[in-house]
Amino acid sequence: MWHENLKLGEPRFLRNLFIVPVIGSDGNGTDIVTLREAQANNWVRISEASSPTVPTIHIAYDGPNPLYLIDGEELVGGYQNRILNTAALIAEHSEVDVPVSCVEQSRWSGELTFAAGNTTSYPSLRAMLLEDVTRSLRATRRFDTNQSRIWDSVAHTLESLKVRSRTQSLHDAFTNLRDLLEEYCKEFESHPHYVGMIVKMGNKCFADIFASPTLFDKYLPQLLESYALESIAFAAPTSADIDTLREFFNTIWEDGWETYPGVGIAHEARKLNDKVAARMTLHGEGNPIHLFAAAR
């Protein structure tokens, strides 16, 4: 199993994030393309669906390797900014409709195309997506979310950050706090064998683990910023509780996974019980690419 090749590194504080790095070795996904890379190379076109509708956008991808979009990744533009309801792995030279949710409540106009936001939703919002989609898949085999809850969460976050946004856009939080987030994140000391991290902020625990250090490195900046955003918005004293984090890590790998088709060429293993919500994005013969988990 994947986790048998993973080790926990030495814990440390990055401001009020208590982080335990996850150490692994090079695995799958070293050739995976991120949305930032795809956009830089003009390999991707993201647009509203042919009849624009909130829960769906369309991605046309023309790159040489699979394109991976992380769950909660933000797309900016279109008729309103969106985030992905779940991770998507898009095959080279293919097109796919992707399930998304709105994070800009008060806009429904503009261009048809999107750009990469280079931002990812904060982890509590990703955890909300994770739970909602798991329930939806169980019931209807669809990647649906609870849009009102997402808007409420975004509004609450904007208010906590005292960010005034005319269209209630999550992206405005990232824009307004750009300098502070960069300061936060440049203190992170990476390592060539880090494949992920388990993070405790206040009494919440999250994990983002990738198949390889290369992949982790690619997503680290936007993930760190997303964690930083939440920690600034809802800063709470965080204890150096390594035991809780170890327990959380172990719980992730316990039995109880359910498998579902994913978006694009991915498939997913999901878990939702009273201790943990988790999702593994897999490819091919069950090769893991990325795991996101949140303690409950």
Binding site: F13, N16, A240
Partner: peptide
Amino acid sequence: KINAWLGG
């Protein structure tokens, strides 16, 4: 021994 982050 660092036990908790208090503020910053």
